[in-house]
Design a protein around this nucleic acid. Structure first.
Lengths: 321, 321
DNA sequence: TTGTAGGCGTTATCAT
DNA sequence: ATGATAACGCCTACAA
């Protein structure tokens, strides 16, 4: 029995007599044999692995993304090589280098606007899908969330409920999504002719703690806000807990809304109104884009926009009557 | 210039004249060269990658675990190959096979008691760290949570606060951690001489939804429980929301407690009492064990127990006075 | 239908 | 200090 035959059996490529196939399979299972991945990719020039670069694995947002990516990648026969905690340009550089030659393509989520320059150099050399990219987004395949529209819609809803003083807890500085959501907030205010008040904008970092901390200065204002819109759910949840500790009732005294619709949002007390993003789908789409670009070689770049929908629950007082 | 020299430059192993090194480096950057990972690992028989097999990426528990693993693995120069949604024996088998030759070792979390048989066959052939393993745990390096002790301590606390009818929302059937936590609950009851009442034990599946659903039958009981202990925080959070919807006050009417202490637990309303597990450390430890076993070759198996601590917040009424 | 042999890009061993 | 060359495990013409 030659190695060639075994290879043929494994790849189901050429014609092998059923009996031979049978025998090979039998011996293979008996010996617990399975082909050596590295050796295969040496000759096939393909690793069947996708690299995933994330800023930081924190909270449900990221577990949902990975879940989506893994699910789709697995179905397409790809493994995923995950690497997190890459915020700065240098960290991304390093991660990129160390994944070189180990993956067939990469999914990169680097919302930090500065890191974009690093990405620029990647252009064309390598199949890349950008998640939430900023300026460089159209130089690659990319998937973006409708941040601006989503935020605008939520703030419009709050306005429609009669709120005039709406505060915003923003995300990290230099973060693309955060910037867009803030922009959406401002657009909505402007559209309804409300003068912007910068004392109503507090900066957070997407963590529960930062949302919690943001509440104090807002309550200390002479003219308190009657609604708080957080740039993500984690911060909204932090704010909810801070308000509760301060004895404020939600939504009676202050309405609260978030962004992302993480699975837990509906289990908050009160249930959190938020801008729904299908986070897992974000991952799925990204993972689906990559193999397709690998197969098709050069093809026009694809820019996908993931739409958002308003999910009105009780934390902002419910639907507009 | 021979390939050997280039190899030496890259590995900084043997003596290379500074000028040669210089020249090679220059050409390398100009050509954008970087070594082919597969070829290297073919000959060095090492991939510098760790496989991570998880049952399902759901909720903050898993993002924390991956975070811990990735953090430590990265520091040790390893990549991580993540694969999730492996519950059944066959799925684990397949994942194991497809990772062969692509990783130096594996971290496997397969709480499903049936899957243990598959693991049995792995023994010795391959560096493996088991997370939350059951019966097979001592055949491998393994890290286990002090499930039994943690659950017992929490139930004892509830008893000390005067609760006599304590319900339990259990985890998935055939899940090792769930079984141990249930056992801890029973131990505590038995120790205080309370007769077990099986109508107080409702089965869940670790999801928020299952926790939410578990509440209804409990409230429908003729003799309602005064406390509910959920086998993880997600279910406790689901229960919290269901209780709130039913107009029950927590902790006045019903006390609630969870297990895991996911980051969000302290931001619930009321804040969730729970059994603290350092989830990220679980991942870190696992990732640290693997490289050490790779370096040292055959060494005695290590069985680590991750201790738990009681975190009493307001959902169960606070400390015992 | 099956076997033979060359080569994928590296590292390691031996010469030089 | 550098060069030549044999592995590593697999795939794939090409030959039989």
């Amino acid at each position: 029995m030659s190695v060639a035959t075994v290879s043929r059996v494994w790849n189901e490529a050429a014609f092998v007599s059923p009996e031979t196939r049978q025998r090979v399979a039998a011996v293979a299972t008996r010996l617990g044999y399975s082909p050596h991945g590295a050796a295969r990719s040496l000759i096939t020039r393909t690793t069947h692995a996708l690299g995933v670069l994330l800023p930081d694995l924190y909270g449900e947002f990221f577990s949902e993304i990975i879940r989506g990516i893994d699910h789709t990648a697995q179905a397409a026969g790809y493994h995923i090589l995950v690497s997190s905690s890459h915020d700065s340009k240098d960290e991304i550089d390093a991660a990129l280098r160390s994944m070189r030659g180990r993956v067939d393509g990469m999914i990169i989520m680097s919302p930090d606007l500065e890191a974009q320059r690093t990405l620029h150099a990647l252009q064309g050399s390598f199949p890349v899908v950008l998640l939430n990219g900023g300026a460089e987004a159209n130089a690659f395949d990319s998937i973006t969330i409708e941040n601006h529209e989503g935020a605008r819609a939520m703030v419009r809803h709050l306005l429609a409920r009669g709120h005039k003083r709406i505060a915003m807890i923003g995300g990290p500085q230099r973060n693309y999504d955060a910037a867009e959501r803030l922009r959406g907030y401002r657009t909505a205010l402007m559209e309804s002719g409300i003068a912007p008040d910068e004392s109503l904008v507090v900066q957070g970092d997407f963590s529960e703690l930062s949302g919690h901390r943001a509440v104090k200065p807002l309550l200390a204002l002479e003219r308190r806000p009657t609604a708080i819109f957080a740039a993500n759910d984690s911060m909204a949840i932090g704010a909810l807990s801070a308000l509760h500790e301060s004895g404020m009732r939600v939504p009676e005294d202050v309405a609260v809304a978030g962004f992302d619709d993480i699975p837990l949002a509906r289990y908050m007390n009160p249930q959190l109104s938020t801008v729904h993003v299908d986070i897992a789908k974000l991952g799925e789409r990204a993972a689906a884009l990559l193999p397709s670009s690998l197969l098709q070689g050069a093809r026009p770049r694809q820019q996908l926009q993931l739409s958002t929908t308003l999910v009105i629950r009780s934390s902002c007082g419910g639907l507009v009557s």
